[in-house]
Design a protein around this nucleic acid. Structure first.
Lengths: 230, 230
DNA sequence: ACAAAAGTGTTAGACCTACACCCATGG
DNA sequence: CCATGGGTGTAGGTCTAACACTTTTGT
């Protein structure tokens, strides 16, 4: 009953960031270990006395310099006993959302570099991190259907087209602009400021902010967002 | 980097069963440990070289005699470092669905007894198992909205009213019979046999079976089931 | 005046909700 | 014939899908 286990527990993070109208994912290049030089998700072993979420936040900060407000548990990988060549390791994967413009990437400890990658430009990954990443992508895609998404990814003030591009980038399909706008506005999570987005070309758009109270309320309550591609 | 951890990993199972038109949950009475004599979810430590899901299935069989086809990962409890008085233990909770009529409960190893409990008759539970149980209930309730449920809980042939009672029992509210039937039949997961349910009183109902192919297809694809209480 | 991006409304169809009476069987 | 539970249809309202032109700005 009190026999010792020879299993170790780690955490990993699938962190999404949105910039330049596209979704990126945060990866690090490993400095040590069996996959030295390979790209991987940020993560590492949990320390004694440390909670799971704390471990993720610590590793993220150490390996990439990023801090995230939004972090949820994704899935625990431990059915495959040999997923780590160093021995049996169970990894509790988390999903994070971040606005990349708030941070400069800085690799500290186990990581040589940290870098944002476009989803269709992912390098070969260490361990089973591709599985974890795919689980994260699927989760993010389904989140859109039952929770508002965007608060943690966009700037405080943003043009409506940013939100639209965000949804299209996550779902990887085109959305009808008129229907999308109607639907989102009907949730009442946006507040239209009187500022105007200064851009290079084309008609400038009004800037919006999230109504944080209403937004968080709908994150709790759940929404039903269903929209066909145009 | 290769420092040893003093954290152990366990699994627990929230197993639902349906009988006599109501949802039950499977609990065991602990034979040993800090909560000796208390009721708890079936579960225990993962063995070296064992996968998570295998560990759940093993513990379930050892402690209750139940085997389940349907088992999904629920959530990993490890943010609270002191959830187990024996030391830091992270528990990967799973959710199982079972037809209780297929098993007689038999407690083998760590359990004194195993027993089915009605949801509104849950005894005091060991550890943070009430949190885990509530997470399981919420998950099962939301599953109804995006996946068909019933295949693993009902008999092979069942009257339509069983399915209806199952949904009502899980959602804890009354459902309009006509609308429910219309909705479920429109999914095409049911096959009407020409057999008749032999019951005590009242008009006998036709027996149905699940169209397993279609059912599993919709489990993958997802459905959208939304129904107001009557 | 042209290029680029923002902004805007209506209609048809699908789906959801509300609602009450008759039917088949056993005792 | 009564009690019990099974079986059935329709109309109103709401939500979604489809669809294209005009407006504002910079160059």
């Amino acid at each position: 009953m009190e026999q010792n286990q020879n299993i170790r527990i780690a955490v990993d993070a699938v962190v999404f960031g949105y910039k330049e109208k596209q979704i990126y994912i945060l990866l690090i290049k490993q400095k040590f270990g069996p996959f030295q030089g390979k790209w991987a998700l940020p993560g590492g072993f949990v320390k004694d006395g440390e909670g799971l979420q704390d471990a993720v936040l610590r590793e993220l900060k150490e390996e990439t310099g990023v801090r995230t407000n939004y972090l949820e548990q994704l899935y625990t990988f431990g059915d495959q006993v040999n997923r780590d060549p160093r021995g049996q390791v169970i990894s509790v994967a988390h999903l994070g959302l971040v606005n990349p413009s708030k941070f400069t990437l800085e690799a500290d400890t186990d990581a040589e570099t940290a870098q944002w990658f476009l989803l269709d430009d992912i390098p070969e990954l260490a361990y089973d991190h591709l599985d974890i990443l795919n689980t994260g992508i699927r989760r993010l895609q389904s989140k859109l259907h039952y929770q508002p998404v965007g608060f943690d990814l966009l700037d405080k003030e943003f043009p409506f087209s940013d939100l639209e591009a965000l949804y299209q980038s996550i779902l990887q399909k085109k959305i009808d602009r008129r229907n999308f706008r109607k639907k989102i506005l009907s949730f009442g999570i946006l507040h239209e400021t009187d500022k105007i987005h200064q851009t290079g070309s084309g008609r400038p758009g009004k800037l919006f902010t999230f109504n944080e109270t209403k937004y968080k309320e709908l994150v709790e309550q759940g929404i039903h967002f269903e929209i066909k591609f145009a």
